[in-house]
Design a protein around this nucleic acid. Structure first.
Lengths: 211, 211, 211, 211
DNA sequence: GATGAATGAGGGTTCATTCAT
DNA sequence: TATGAATGAACCCTCATTCAT
């Protein structure tokens, strides 16, 4: 029964199953057998039917994840008015529900753990990073002194990556909403020092401060 | 070659080789063959001669790394005078040279990526985390309001983990000294809001601020 | 080669090859490599394709052998009229051609030698033993005094096991037909003492007698 | 401390440990490591120090066992007066306490299971068998018609081997004394048919009979 | 005499992949 | 389109054995 569009459906099923397996079997190397079993398909031959190889499936899976993430960023940033709102939009995108399911978080950590090994993954990672950091810096340029842009951007990225890593390690240890709030607060208080944000210029009052 | 007392020497060699392989061959599962080749030993039998299994070698490797890290923390915290100094000591320990070689960073990320899979690794991770977070909170209790202790501690941990993760992903992207400085500044400015730290109450000067 | 329905064929081939290897390579632990080579298959991966493990293959092999044996017993016992005929049927089943090929005898001895080691094999052995001994005792109840049933049954079993063991040790030493005849004669003469069997009460002629 | 006679002591220790390991670890192939651990020696090198190889140790172990058994036979046969007593002596030797410890029984079954594989073991087995069967037949010649000697001897051997095998399979299933008694009774009743033994010529009375 | 170091062969198992159906 | 057959590489581990101490 050569249904049209079967290819797309199967691919999506397999990609979804891949992230599920990454999560369920720890972050161990997912096997094709496990992925196919999870997708309800028998025989791992089907993977080589729709993908060039296991590596291809994994790359597609990560590209899919990355596309979703960059989409969240683009969507939110494009609707932000002020520079500060753009910064906040980037942070919101990082903690967006679609990126924070246990499966997604596991997939991200799995992906990161393979970046040093795998050149293709490294390229994807660099592309994501360049895009997000670029977005961040473009906004920060309008808010903080030129000399501070890099450090502030780097700080924000580290904070988000750190929360993600810690969430992946133990999902009971951390609450995503809390993580997002802490990050947002950190930025607000930080930028308020430069006379931006909702706060006044000099934080003489018991200003929020970082974290 | 059959010198007596070879056990400690070989164990150390193999542990060192393990972290080296983790780093060199990406964060992929290190094979005993690769580890032995790296250590200059022939045949992977030698590993089972000195360790109970591959898993045992990996656990010993991580315990060794963890011990080194906790040692750095203990050493620096014990010589700190004020509560603020203790917080800074924890941060310094995280970015201590012994913990920031490319090999060590790779090993840490490898370790983290296995925590969800492996119960023993999870225990080690929890032990480390409890210890460091505990140290941090004990000091923060004297500095920030009770209600803020958890969030501040969590923020500091995330910042450090995030820098480490990003360093592991691309060592050219980040400079450890910079990461340490940004983290320290973040803490100082944060805590200064509560009237603590070496800085005066109101940061009238181009205030430190977070990140 | 990838014909459908290959599973049953291959399983049978592998089981047959297993007993062959047990026989040919003495009763040493058969290796998958040897079994596959014997079956004309390349690489021992095929075993794990059709069986869960080597242990599974061995268990299936023995269950197959046991089923054949119990089938022989059931077939012959069910067509026996008198109680004595049932006893003789059990003996005939033990020395049936299907159970007395050199391969089968080797497989049985191999199996027995593993019973003390292996719980699954022990269960199979107990099941077989209980079944055969039970069949024997049920028939004997009608022939010999209650007090003698156990000893007679035990004696018959020992005689059969002993012949089998000796046949396994050296197939030139013994002739199966002779063994069967000796066992049958032993039973006939034994039971004739109780006034049963086709023979008259007192064996006035140079009576058969045991052995 | 080069104690004199250390060699004999160590050899005996190792041989004893070998049978112990054969029994304790089922009838699996005993490893040198297990044997040395059982003997309280560290490092399996000691075996190659006192024996030429593992095979040598195993052969010595079986020769030791065989010597003990043949000694039992010789001792009892030499003190037997009548031909019938000699037959009974052989049976008693088979079930002598020294040959019926769980360790000895396991060792014997282990040995038998290796006979088809191993030429040296086969030679030992043949030597034992020839000796015992010879002893038996020599006595039987004086009791039973020439034509029956082989069958009767073979029957007795089978009965004894069968009991041993069944005892090795499950020591709870069988009692050595019972096995010995059944065998002795079988012989007595059998030979009584030929006008020998304690019984009268024609077993018209409810003679014991076999088993 | 006895130990510990080191090696290498060989075993079972997992797994991605190819191919015929 | 989809499945099952089959293969071969790679891995961890066990174990007997040799050698230097």
């Amino acid at each position: 029964m050569p249904k049209l569009g079967m290819e797309l459906i199967r691919k999506r099923e397999l990609i979804r199953a891949t992230t599920a397996v990454m999560h369920e079997s720890g972050l161990a190397e997912p096997t094709l057998a496990a992925i196919c079993a999870r997708a309800g398909l028998s025989s791992s031959s089907i993977v080589n039917h729709y993908f060039e190889s296991k590596q291809d499936l994994l790359e597609c899976t990560m590209r899919d994840l990355a596309a979703g993430f960059l989409g969240e960023v683009a969507l939110r940033v494009s609707t932000a008015r002020s520079a500060l709102d753009k910064v906040r939009a980037v942070i919101d995108a990082n903690f967006a529900p679609s990126q924070c399911t246990p499966e997604a978080v596991s997939a991200w950590l799995w992906f990161w753990s393979r970046v040093p090994t795998n050149e293709v993954f490294a390229q994807i990672e660099r592309a994501i990073d360049d895009h997000v950091v670029g977005e961040l810096k473009r906004a920060l340029h309008e808010i903080v002194p030129e000399a501070d842009v890099d450090d502030v951007a780097e700080g924000i990225m580290a904070l988000m990556y750190g929360f993600w890593l810690r969430f992946a390690l133990d999902q009971k240890k951390l609450n995503i909403q809390t993580a997002c709030r802490i990050t947002q607060d950190a930025v607000v208080s930080k930028l308020s020092l430069y006379g931006q944000g909702h706060a006044g210029a000099c934080p003489s009052s018991p200003t929020p401060g970082l974290f």
